[in-house]
Amino acid sequence: MSDPLTISEQALIDARGVVVAYGGQRSAFGRAKPEKRVLHGVDVVIGRGQTVGIVGESGSGKTTLGRALLGLVPVADGSIRFDRHEIVGLKEDALRPLRKRMQMIFQDPMSSLNPRHDIRHILIAPLLLHGLARDRREAEVQVRAVLDRVGLPASALERYPHELSGGQRQRVGIARAVVLAPDFVLADEIVSGLDVSTQAQVLQLLGELKRDMNLSMAFISHDLSVVRAVCDRVYVLSGGRVVEQGACEQVFASPHHDYTKVLIDAIPLPVIDPQWLGRGQRST
């Protein structure tokens, strides 16, 4: 393993001692609800172009950690640097310039796409917001290119989210995450709602995008077989703490922590079916 200092020098995201607690804000009458600590000092380093897996059982704090890295949940203690900019404690306005550089793909594409907006609006609005297109026409050109890149026809632009299939919606979610050409994408359980053949297609697409765009990614999943297939490094989270971390092959081959062993043992043995890919393509 490389020296942690050299990692952090070239790291895109460098999070140290991150503590997140929910609740605890004061109401107007001074009653403070008891706060609940969810992350107890987590260190995560993500290099440029690297894909980092975050695994752990449900409730271990994976989503919270991912959202903390994006500055979406208030961080009680610790430091998160994105490309050397400290984002802990930044106001929403101060964070905005960095926003377009870090994006997110959601677990449930249905609830992450506004049911009132058609796909055109969903994809064009961010481009106009960040001034990445001068006008709607220019944005339209870019959006069509991205749609094509994620394997959706231009006719999808007129559709509303509920008019698409689950796999198509997730492609829109991916298109939205990459349309701003970010440096970092958080993928939170993005294939757990999809059937197996769609899962494979979406993962393949993500791998291509990552390569073409030199994306750094945090890939959250409770499914270790998926993480194993896509990640360079892996962090094992339990009860809001990192219990094990390291290069992917290494952790999977010789886990040190008992918790990791349990997780790995829970991976179902892959059932090899040579017809599998071909079948996925023929069915519609």
């Binding site: 959202r67 994006l70 979406l72 929403e92 306005d93 905005r96 926003r99 377009k100 870090m102 994006q103 997110m104 959601f106 677990q107 449930d108 609830s111 992450s112 796409l113 506004n114 049911p115 609005a125 961010p126 917001l129 960040h130 939205r176 701003l180």
Partner: peptide, 15 residues
């Protein structure tokens, strides 16, 4: 609470 609101925040839209 909906994810589409989180998505809008992530994209940088103001409140």
């Amino acid at each position: 609470q909906g994810d589409y609101v989180t998505a809008a925040r992530t994209l940088g839209f103001g409140r």
